[in-house]
Simulated scan of single mutants.
Amino acid sequence: MCKGLSALPATCLERAKEMKGKCFSVLKLYVKALPQLVMFDMTCQYSVDCFRASPEEKRLQELEKLLTNKHGLLVFRAFLCKEFSEENIDFWMACEDFKNMKENSKLTFKAKKIYEEYVAIKAPKEINLDSQTREAVTSNVTNPTLSCFETAQKRIFNLMEKDSFPRFLKSELCLDILR
């Protein structure tokens, strides 16, 4: 092992190995999903709504469609994993699950879990939020409702839409699918 890595705490090395394993398993799923992704691209590319929309609306519609397609979601997550920003999609997915919860008895537990994993300062998968949004979520979690993460989820979606998704569309991963 090189000197640089041996100087890191064991927890950092374990986390890096864990992330590498997750990325590898997601990439294996991506290879299996190629045929479905080509069909996804064709339906998005040729939908009537896409032709009428502005470039920003097209990108928004494409990202929304990508996130509702299980194979598209896997490939986008694999891309974010390669870019070390998979916490964004993980948080977005956790919020989607949270909004669709049926049992109110577990609402507080699930809200605190999401908060501690993604929103809290120095959280294991801390997402990039402005202080105002972080404070709003912090106060919402004390008495959670199904919409307590809504603002933060929108911010992360906008971040992915404006930053990660355009890079994804230009990435080798995406271009390979389109070929």
Results as ranks from 00 to 15, higher is better:
47 S>C: 15
40 F>H: 12
52 R>F: 15
174 C>L: 03
149 F>D: 04
149 F>Y: 02
148 C>G: 07
47 S>E: 15
110 K>N: 01
129 L>D: 02
49 D>Y: 01
17 K>E: 14
142 T>M: 11
114 I>K: 03
119 V>M: 07
46 Y>S: 10
146 L>G: 05
119 V>S: 03
163 D>L: 10
46 Y>F: 15
88 N>Y: 09
108 T>D: 14
37 L>N: 13
154 K>V: 09
27 L>P: 00
120 A>T: 04
11 T>H: 10
1 M>I: 01
55 P>S: 04
161 E>L: 15
138 T>H: 12
135 E>L: 11
62 E>Q: 10
178 L>E: 03
137 V>G: 00
83 E>D: 05
135 E>K: 07
22 K>E: 12
176 D>H: 11
116 E>P: 00
120 A>S: 05
61 Q>H: 09
8 L>A: 13
127 I>K: 00
148 C>L: 10
70 K>H: 07
117 E>T: 14
134 R>D: 01
155 R>Y: 00
49 D>V: 09
73 L>V: 04
144 P>Y: 04
122 K>R: 10
104 N>R: 04
126 E>H: 04
132 Q>L: 10
4 G>P: 02
16 A>C: 05
155 R>S: 15
80 L>C: 15
177 I>F: 10
70 K>C: 08
60 L>V: 04
86 E>I: 01
160 M>P: 01
127 I>Y: 05
64 E>N: 09
95 C>G: 03
175 L>V: 11
48 V>H: 04
15 R>H: 12
174 C>K: 10
148 C>Q: 09
41 D>K: 00
93 M>V: 14
164 S>Q: 11
35 P>H: 04
122 K>A: 10
104 N>H: 06
80 L>T: 13
121 I>E: 11
54 S>K: 01
99 K>Y: 12
81 C>E: 12
19 M>Q: 15
66 L>S: 06
101 M>D: 03
79 F>P: 00
109 F>H: 10
25 S>W: 11
84 F>L: 13
133 T>C: 15
87 E>V: 05
124 P>N: 06
124 P>K: 04
132 Q>H: 06
8 L>P: 05
40 F>I: 08
75 V>S: 05
3 K>F: 12
144 P>I: 08
98 F>G: 07
126 E>N: 01
94 A>Q: 01
59 R>Q: 15
104 N>E: 11
172 E>K: 08
148 C>K: 07
14 E>I: 05
136 A>H: 07
